[in-house]
Amino acid sequence: MSQSRYDVLAVGNAIVDVLSPATDAFLESQGIPKGAMNLIDEERATSLYADMQPGKEASGGSAANTVAGIASMGGKAAYIGKVADDQLGEIFTHDIRAIGVDFDTPPLKNGPATARCLINVTPDAQRSMSTFLGAAALVTEEDVAADADKLRASSIIYLEGYLFDREEAKRGYVHAAELAAAAGKRTALTLSDLFCVDRHRAAFRHLVANHIDILLANEAEITALYETEDFDEAVRLVGRDVGVAAITRSEKGAVIVRGDEVVSVAAAPVSQLVDTTGAGDLFAAGFLLGLARDLSLEDAGKMGVICAAEIISHFGARPETDLKSLIEAGGIDLE
C-alpha cells in the first residue's frame, strides 16, 4: 500500500452541477448538442437554467467527482480547483470537504461567478452538458504551487482535460507533473471529452508523451487522439507513450494497457441504466485508487467498472451505494 498522505490529488474545474430530466425535443429547441459538453456564457447559463425542469444540484466537476468517489471508498483525496467568493462557491467548498476531501484553494475575489454545469438527461440516459466555467477556468500555476506540499504527499496527481483551455492551466499542469516527477510520484490525465481532444490534440499529445504516467480515456477519445479509426492501433500507440492507459468501452468494459501488456476487463452488471453522468469520473476513482494501493491492473480495472456501474444506475454523479462494500463483494481487498 502507498505510504503517501493522499492516494490521489486532483486538479480540475470546480463546478456546481445541476442535473435535470429532459427530452430530445428540449435539446433540439435549445440547440444543445446531445451527449456532449458545450461551453456557454453567464447570460446563457441564466436563461437555460430558467427553462430546465426542476433538478438536483450538487458540487461537481469531473475531477471533483473522482476524488469524491475515492473518499467514499475510504481513500485519501485532495483537490485543487477555483471557486468564486459567492454563495455557490461556499456550497461547493462545504460539500467537497463534508465528504472527506481536503480542499483549500483560496476563492476568487472580484472576478467571474462560481461555475455551474447544466446537465440535461434524456430517457436514454445520455447527458448533455452546458457549462459556464466562470471562476473554475482560472486555476493557475500559482494555485498549484501553493499546494506543492500536498502534491508531493500524493501517490497520484490527477489532471482533468476539461481544464486545459487556458494557457495558465496548461502551465499549471506541467508544473504539477514536474513536482510529481521530482517527488517520485505519478501523474495521471483524463482526456475528458472528444471535443477537448479535437481542440487540444497537439498539446495533449505533447503532454502525454512528456509528462503523463497514467492516461484515462474512452474509445472515441483515444482513437481521436492518435487520429486513427483502428482501436487496436490506438492501443499500440498509447502503450508506447505512457506507463499505463485505461480505456473505457461502455458495455464492453475497459482495456488496460501497460507497454505490450493488454488486460481486458468486462463491464460490471448494471441493475438499471438511468444516467451516464459521471461514469468516466467514477471509473477513474476506482482505477486510480486501485493503482495507488498497488493492486494489479486487472483488479484496478475491476474497481473502475464496479464504480461506473453503480453511478449509472441512478440519477447524479455521486454514489448512492457503499462503493467499498461493492468492491469487497467483488473479491478485492482495499486494506
Rank of each mutant, 00 (worst) to 15 (best):
G89D: 10
I332C: 01
G253D: 01
H314W: 09
V139T: 13
V242D: 01
I306H: 03
I80R: 08
G81M: 12
A284Q: 00
A203G: 04
I312Y: 03
A98F: 05
F231D: 09
M1D: 13
F195Q: 01
S47H: 14
T131R: 07
M303T: 02
T321I: 14
G161S: 09
L163H: 06
G304F: 00
A268K: 09
G161V: 04
H206V: 06
L295M: 13
I247Q: 03
A137Q: 15
F283H: 08
I40R: 02
V238E: 06
G259T: 12
E142W: 10
G89K: 09
Y49P: 01
M129A: 03
T223N: 10
E233D: 14
L138A: 03
S47K: 09
H200G: 00
V208C: 03
A309G: 10
T93K: 07
L9M: 04
C196H: 08
P269Q: 05
P107C: 15
D294K: 10
I306C: 08
E43M: 15
S192G: 06
V244Y: 00
L215V: 07
I32A: 03
A329V: 07
I306D: 00
A64T: 14
G330T: 08
A176H: 06
I312V: 12
V235D: 04
G161A: 07
D17Q: 13
D230M: 12
L297Q: 00
T131E: 12
D17W: 09
A245H: 06
N218M: 08
A317W: 00
A68F: 08
E167K: 07
L225W: 05
L88V: 06
D24R: 14
I91P: 07
F195M: 09
V265S: 00
H211I: 08
S264L: 05
A77I: 01
G35P: 02
F283W: 06
Y226D: 02
A292W: 00
D275P: 03
T105P: 07
I247E: 05
A125H: 04
Q30E: 13
C307F: 07
D147Y: 04
S2V: 14
A300H: 10
A135F: 02
A329M: 13
E28N: 12
T140A: 12
V208N: 11
T66G: 09
E168S: 13
A188C: 15
A308H: 02
T105F: 14
E335D: 15
A188R: 02
I327C: 03
V101A: 01
I332G: 01
I332N: 01
G278S: 02
A135E: 12
E251H: 03
C196F: 01
V255H: 05
V274S: 05
M129Y: 11
E168T: 11
A308V: 07
D333F: 09
S47F: 11
R116L: 14
I247V: 15
L194R: 05
P319L: 06
A113M: 10
V274C: 05
G243K: 10
V18Q: 12
E221R: 09
V265E: 00
V270L: 05
M52E: 02
V274E: 02
L282C: 05
G316H: 05
V265M: 00
I15W: 04
V144Y: 03
A68I: 07
E221Y: 10
E233M: 15
D275M: 00
T190M: 08
L159Y: 04
Q3I: 15
K76R: 12
D241Q: 15
K76H: 12
D51C: 09
D198V: 10
I157E: 04
